[in-house]
Design a protein around this nucleic acid. Structure first.
Length: 136
DNA sequence: ATTCTAACA
DNA sequence: TGTTAGTA
């Protein structure tokens, strides 16, 4: 069988916006809500594989029947919720932003959270540097 | 020109 | 959600 192409094509958020009909705002929001993940370039720009695009299309359809992001997230976790032919072995989609919906960390003690800890630290690093347009 | 995050409407 | 500000 053909192995997975290590150079799977990826698309910018602008291309994904055209392919899915979703706005960039929605795409980013769904990611922040943990409905989907995306790749990042060195400059933090999102990249999407075709599978991610399929998932976004699924989310788009699901939102027509499900009234909440919460409901869509649950529907996505159940097998068979997506397009036929695509089987999800895992559903690694949980909110990654400690500030928004849900939390990024569950516990500090198990060192099994290394990835989450690093992600949070990087997020905090980004916060330090950012400028607020409204300074109270 | 495009995207990113945060914040405001 | 859309839009805007200030960056990278």
């Amino acid at each position: 069988m053909a192995d997975q192409d290590p150079n799977q094509p990826t698309y910018s958020i602008g291309e994904v916006r055209e392919k899915t009909g979703l706005t960039s705002r929605q795409i980013r929001y769904y990611e922040a809500m943990g409905l989907i993940e995306s790749l990042r370039t060195n400059g933090q720009h999102r990249r999407f594989t075709e599978e991610m695009i399929d998932r976004l299309l699924t989310i788009k359809e699901l939102l027509k029947e499900k009234p909440s992001i919460e409901a869509v997230r649950q529907a996505l976790q159940q097998p068979g919720a997506g397009p036929p032919g695509l089987s999800r072995k895992k559903a690694p989609a949980l909110p990654r932003y400690p500030q928004l919906g849900r939390q990024g960390l569950t516990s500090l003690y198990p060192v099994s959270n290394r990835a989450d800890l690093l992600a949070m630290i990087q997020w905090m690093e980004g916060q330090k540097k950012k400028k607020t347009k409204k300074d109270p």
